[in-house]
Amino acid sequence: MRRKRTAILISGRGSNMRALVQRARSPSYPAEIALVLSNRPDAPGLAFAKENGIATAAVDHKIYAGREEFERSMQLLLELHRIEYICLAGFLRILTPWFVGHWRGRLLNIHPALLPAYRGLDTHARALADGVKIHGCTVHFVVPAMDEGPIIAQAAVPVLDSDTTETLAARVLEQEHIIYPAALERVAGEKLRVEGNRVFCGDDAFPSAPLRVPSAEGDSG
C-alpha cells in the first residue's frame, strides 16, 4: 500500500496535528504526514513536528501583499514535498477560492461544533449561551464558503449544567482527536464517496465516545 503524502497546516500548538501524527505512526495507516506548514514561524507545533522527524516549513503571511500571493508561496512548498492531501489543524487563515479549488476533495478541516450549527468563532460560548443540550465537532471537506462543505465525520458530547466554555471545549477536543485521524484514514484510504453535499462512508461507524445525556432524575453515573 502506498501511503498518501499529507500536509498539516497549523498556526499554533497544533493539538489536532499531534493526534494525526500519532495515528499516522502505524505502518498500516494510509496517510503519511510528510509536512507540517505554518503561517507563523514561531508556532509551537513546528517544534513538535521537528522532534518527530517531520519536515516543517513556515510561510509568514505578514510579508505578503495579499492572500493569493501568500497561498502561491504555500503551493510551491506543497508541490516541492509532493503533497496529495491537506489537513487544516488550527490554521487561522481564510483560504481563497483559488487555493480551495486547486485542492478540492483533498482539503480537510475540523470545526469545533456540529455543523451546520455554529459556523465561525466562539462556538462553545455560543452553544452555552443558546442553552443547547448537544454540542460537538465536525470534520468536513473545505469549500470556498467558510465552515461549509461535505461532512465526513461528526462526534457529539452532552452539554452539562455545570459546563463552562473551558470544560465544554476540553470534552469536544477529546472527540476531535478521535474523529480527525479516523476521517483522514477514510479519505486517504479512498473508503468513501461524495454525492453532492453528502459523504457516504460505508456501514462502519466512526469511533467516538458514546453520547450519554444525564436523565431528568439527575442520574450522573
Score class of each variant (00 low, 15 high):
Leu80Ser: 05
Ala153Lys: 04
Leu80Gln: 14
Pro30His: 07
Pro144Thr: 12
Asp147Gly: 12
Ala129Leu: 08
Pro210His: 09
Ala117Cys: 10
Arg119Val: 04
Leu77Pro: 05
Gly14Asn: 06
Leu20Glu: 12
Leu115Ile: 12
Thr56His: 08
Trp98Ile: 04
Ala216Leu: 15
His81Arg: 14
Gln154Asn: 11
Lys62Trp: 00
Ser208Glu: 05
Leu184His: 05
Pro150His: 02
Cys87Ala: 14
Tyr118Phe: 15
Arg193Tyr: 04
Trp98Arg: 15
Val199Ser: 00
Arg3Ser: 11
Arg13His: 10
Phe99Arg: 10
Ile151Trp: 03
Glu185Lys: 14
Arg72Ala: 02
Arg198Met: 02
Gly196Pro: 11
Pro112His: 08
Ala169Ile: 00
Met17Phe: 12
Gly120Tyr: 11
Ile94His: 06
Lys133Ser: 01
Ala205Glu: 13
Asp60Phe: 01
Val59Asp: 03
Thr138His: 03
Thr138Met: 03
Leu35Asp: 03
Gly53Tyr: 07
Val187Ile: 01
Phe70Lys: 01
Ala188Lys: 02
Gly202Cys: 05
Phe70Trp: 14
Ala156Asn: 07
Ile94Tyr: 06
Ile178Ala: 07
Tyr118Ile: 01
Trp98Gln: 14
Gly120Arg: 08
Val213Ile: 15
Gln175Tyr: 09
Asp122Tyr: 15
Gly221Glu: 13
Asp147Pro: 11
Glu166Val: 11
Ser73Gly: 01
Gly131Val: 11
Thr123Leu: 05
Arg93Pro: 07
Arg104Phe: 05
Leu211Gln: 06
His81Cys: 04
Ala31Val: 05
Arg25Met: 13
Pro150Gln: 04
Thr167Leu: 10
Phe141Ile: 03
Ala65Asp: 02
Arg5Ala: 12
Asp219Tyr: 13
His140Trp: 03
Leu78Thr: 06
Tyr180Gly: 01
Arg171Thr: 12
Val194Gly: 00
Arg198Asn: 04
Tyr29Asn: 08
Arg82Cys: 06
Asn39Gln: 08
Cys87Pro: 12
